[in-house]
Amino acid sequence: MTLDDLRVFVAVCRAGSLSAVARDLGCTQSAVSQHVKRLERETGVALLERQPRGVAPTQAGRVLEGAAAEGISGLDLALRQLRDLVDGHSGSVRVATGATTVRHFMSEAVVTFRRRHPRVNLEFRTVSSGRGSFDALADGTLDLVWITLGPPVRGIEQRAVVELPWVLAVRSDDPLADRTSLTPGELTGVRPIRLPPNSTSAAQLEAACAESDVRLGYDTSVADWDTALLLAELGVGRAVVPALPGLTVPSGTRLRLIPLPGLRPLSVGWAVRRWEALSPPARAFADTVLDSAGARPA
């Protein structure tokens, strides 16, 4: 008993004619009859009975026809969904990131992806730690994690999307506000607002400063870059932060951003379990973010 046998049998029951189905399939009536006979041999019952005009299913035939039609319909739907999944037209993409990342790195990409793949479900999740994100990738709970690139992690692949230069954020009345740039050495004694001490971005900043023999001291700490910028604008302190994509200082605000070209830039991008194992929708979303980031300056 094959799927073709069942498809042909259902078609015969609905058409009431072996010859009509043969014409539709472009084969002989004998070939159609063989499909039915194979089913009758395997079920051990007669499935069709001849009538003055054509054929009709027996009681057993009606039972098989109903079950086969329902199963074929469900299978056809599953096959269409699988084709959509392979083509990247449906399915889901589970991404670990936060509002800051979506705002500065993914806003254009999300709009573009949603327009191109309206039936793909985008799931944005918050994970409390980088280790937790990597564990979720490993067990298949997540597809993509947006990270500050760090040391290699066993079983995880990292791919840079954009490099972010560092800037010093100060209030407009700060003595450094009129500077066009600063060297790393001029950060000595600045005591900026601290990024989360256990974060990769904080570690990368300290490593970049250490390359210029600069050791930073801190008075205030925050959980994210946007909060550091807000505190700098309020005059609570100064903040060394990455020059986030789309980060501008609107006229009339008290915030000033001073480039720090001497510090090694911060690399951010994707972490996945294996790139070649990504589903087509997940790969499409990762590539859309990459294209979006490459189309605009940091």
Score class of each variant (00 low, 15 high):
1 M>F: 11
5 D>K: 04
12 V>A: 04
16 G>P: 04
19 S>H: 05
27 C>D: 07
30 S>I: 09
31 A>G: 06
35 H>W: 11
37 K>Q: 15
39 L>T: 03
39 L>G: 05
43 T>L: 14
45 V>G: 05
47 L>C: 01
49 E>P: 00
53 R>V: 12
54 G>V: 06
55 V>M: 09
56 A>G: 01
56 A>N: 02
62 R>D: 13
64 L>P: 03
65 E>H: 08
65 E>R: 07
70 E>L: 13
74 G>T: 15
75 L>V: 12
76 D>T: 12
79 L>D: 00
80 R>V: 13
82 L>R: 15
83 R>C: 07
91 G>E: 05
92 S>F: 06
92 S>Y: 10
94 R>A: 11
96 A>P: 07
101 T>L: 08
108 E>I: 00
109 A>R: 05
112 T>W: 02
112 T>P: 00
114 R>Y: 02
117 H>S: 11
118 P>Y: 00
119 R>F: 13
124 F>A: 02
127 V>E: 02
128 S>W: 13
129 S>P: 04
130 G>I: 03
132 G>E: 10
132 G>N: 06
134 F>Y: 13
136 A>I: 12
137 L>V: 04
140 G>N: 14
141 T>F: 11
155 G>V: 07
157 E>D: 08
158 Q>C: 09
170 V>F: 00
171 R>K: 08
179 R>Y: 08
180 T>W: 09
180 T>P: 13
181 S>Q: 13
187 L>N: 09
192 P>T: 04
194 R>L: 05
194 R>G: 00
195 L>K: 09
195 L>C: 07
199 S>Q: 08
203 A>H: 10
204 Q>M: 13
206 E>G: 05
210 A>Y: 02
218 Y>E: 03
222 V>S: 07
223 A>K: 08
229 L>F: 10
232 A>L: 07
234 L>Q: 15
234 L>R: 14
239 A>F: 02
243 A>Y: 01
249 V>Y: 03
255 L>V: 06
256 R>Q: 06
265 P>Q: 05
271 A>H: 07
276 E>A: 14
278 L>A: 01
281 P>H: 05
283 R>V: 04
284 A>Y: 06
286 A>E: 03
288 T>C: 11
292 S>A: 10
294 G>S: 14
297 P>A: 11
